[in-house]
Structures are given as C-alpha cells and as structure tokens.
C-alpha cells in the first residue's frame, strides 16, 4: 500500500506536510520522530480518524493500536466482549492465543490486567478486524522495559506468522530498529529520510537523523 501526498492541517497549522510513503505488503515500516513531528497525526489520518488531503491507496482495512493501554480499552467491557466487537465471539479464544494470553482472561475487566496484558488485548482486538494494515502508535512507550521486550517480540512474531503489514511509530530509534525493515524519519511534518533500517541507522544521510541517533542513551559507549 502507499500513502500519497498526504497532508493534515489544523487551522493554519500544518501537522503533516505532503507525505508520500510506501508500505510494502508484509513489511514493517518504522516511523520515528519527536513529539510534534506529526507522526501521530499521520497515523490518525491513515486510520481515517482526522480529516486530511491526499490519499491512502491499497489498504484494505486499517486497524490501530494506541499508546496508552489504560485509555484504549472500555473499562466497562470484558476482554472477551472487547475482542468480539470486531471479530465475533467465536474468534476470541484464537485471538487471545495469538497474543499469547490464556483464554480465561476473556471474562476479566481491563482493570484486572497489567499494562502489558492490556496492550496485548488491544493488539488482539485490532487483529480481530482482519487488518490489511496495522498502525501501532507508540505501543510500548507507556510500558515498563521488562514488559516492552515481550510486546516487541510479540509484534515480530505476529509479522512472521501472519504476514502482517505494519506502520510502527515510536520516538525511540532503538525500538524501531528492532522491529522495522524500513525506517522513515519525520521532522516538522515532513519525511526527511526513508531507507532500509540498517542503512538509516548505520549511515544516516540527514543531519536530523544523525542528531536523533547521537541522542539515544546507551549503556555501552
């Protein structure tokens, strides 16, 4: 699928400025940028949640997983009903299995789950919509590191198992590098660099990408 000349404007402010980005079938494109760079607006436009100009071609059904697993599940609905909303009640068990959660969890309410479990439920709900494209918007940034690893592994596993096409958004280059095949760097509403992950991380062409890379905290230096 391809995003063509997409722009999002809020009044006089242009959040996304003429972005064209191809997401190959079965591939994971990582979108990095800082807060205010327009990456979340781009995600919401691709999902049809904000008005935009330009087009999104070739995406059958788009589903999204949100940043905050505490706000993205209806607190009054059980896990089972939440997942069944898109997929139907017969699929609940299979989808819970896909995100490596026990089937007993179907009867629980979100408040009884940990942050990592909630995020898995949100992923299961999105998968239930049988997405042609899955948009993951900062899905690990409100999780603890020990849980983040497991969710990232799950994302990679799902891609391999289901051939999922994904737009994976994060401000953390190390996280994006781990899951994405292609990295797109966004700055002030524009894409400043797009390329295969190892190339963007190894030989960044744009000055802003270099600044982002230099700022990643690391233990071994």
């Amino acid at each position: 699928m391809i995003i063509k000349n997409l722009s999002v404007r809020f009044g006089a402010f242009t959040a996304v400025d003429d972005v064209t980005l191809e997401i190959p079938d079965g591939g994971v494109v990582g979108l990095v940028g800082e807060s205010g760079s327009g990456k979340s607006s781009l995600a919401r436009a691709v999902c049809g949640l904000v008005p935009h100009t330009g087009s999104v071609e070739g995406a059958r059904r788009v589903q999204m997983v949100f940043q905050d697993p505490y706000a993205s599940l209806n607190p009054r609905m059980t896990v089972g009903r939440t997942i069944a909303e898109g997929a139907g009640p017969k699929e609940v068990e299979r989808l819970l299995g896909l995100v490596r959660l026990p089937a007993e969890l179907a009867g629980r309410y979100p408040r009884e789950l940990s942050g990592g479990q909630r995020q898995r439920v949100a992923i299961a709900r999105a998968l239930g919509g049988n997405p042609g494209l899955l948009v993951a918007d900062e899905i690990t940034s409100s999780l603890d590191v020990s849980v983040q690893g497991a969710v990232l592994n799950l994302v990679r596993g799902l891609r391999d198992e289901l051939g999922l096409t994904m737009l994976f958004i994060s401000h953390n280059l190390a996280v994006v590098r781990y899951v994405a095949d292609v990295v797109a760097v966004m700055h002030h509403g524009r894409l400043v660099e797009v390329g295969p992950t190892e190339q963007v991380v190894g030989e960044p062409a744009h000055e802003y990408t270099r600044a982002l890379l230099a700022a990643v905290p690391r233990l071994r230096g």
């Binding site: 690893g149 990643v216 071994r220």
Partner: peptide
C-alpha cells in the same frame, strides 16, 4: 531487555 542500537535483530529480546 533494553534494546539499543547494537541489539541483535535476529534473536528475540529478553523480557522478564
């Protein structure tokens, strides 16, 4: 469990 810019992408991340 912390991915950095040198993490091996071919193996699963360690979690707890």
């Amino acid at each position: 469990s912390l991915p950095d810019l040198d993490t091996d992408r071919s193996t699963p991340l360690a979690g707890i």
